[in-house]
Amino acid sequence: MSAADGAIAPTESALLTLREVTKSFGGLTAVNGVSFAVGEGAVVGLIGPNGAGKTTVFNLITGNYQPNHGDIHFTGQRLNGLRTHRIIMLGIARTFQNIRLFQQLTVLENALAGCHYRMSGGILAGMLWLPTQRRVEKAAVERAVQELEFVGLGQQTLTVAKNLSYGDQRRLEIARALATQPRLLILDEPAGGMNEQETEALIGLIEQIRARGITILLIEHDMRLVMRACEKLVVLEHGGKIAEGSPEQVRSDPRVIEAYLGTEDEV
């Protein structure tokens, strides 16, 4: 897998840049010299067969893993070595492939988690319930409710998260991510487990998020969603990048077709 085909220098227009990023776990190289850039305001899809290293790339961007080689830059700042919450505070928010909500907490409390780092108030302010704390909490609740209404969960603020339908849980995760007021939103299989109508609604939601000026990077297996929502695709296979370009270019790329359908002699 050559890494030379995608050597991108951090450019000013790019919000997020990965350069020659490699991550191995013991003997297994999960991500191998991957480079790509996400321009401000774009919707970029990261696709590839199962086990291609897509989620690992996400975990590298948000600091859950540290790359062995290569650099990740966001708005000109190097992300390597930063802890996850620091990266979130810089303006990247994410959702998880296997939904990670605070199951026992209410929808509102889940969304409030996203507001957390922009709020103030520690132990003393909380115990004494000072007027400043009250104001901060009120503003945060308003902000959280706004995001819940945006994703269509405005009527269910006091429902316990685990009692939501699968599609609603995915939407709540997006609301929690949006509540951090990100510049870049990373969605890991947002349509996973959704039915057709829910997927359709999700495409609409992605459009709306983009209209707010938020850049989106997503992993998705649902090709209809990918082809409709994304303007640029990055294709991974066995940890390496095999193609990059518009959906039309990628769709007709022989290497992509081979990765997805296999070669004749494999069959």
């Binding site: 605070f102 199951q103 709020m119």
Partner: peptide, 26 residues
């Protein structure tokens, strides 16, 4: 009071899912 404040909620996020909490900027 602490329980229903920002600090108290952060503790609950921690208990429910520390990875998700960290991933929400906590």
């Amino acid at each position: 009071r602490l329980k229903r404040s920002r600090f108290g909620r952060a503790l609950n996020y921690l208990r429910e899912d520390a990875t998700a909490a960290e991933g929400s900027g906590i």
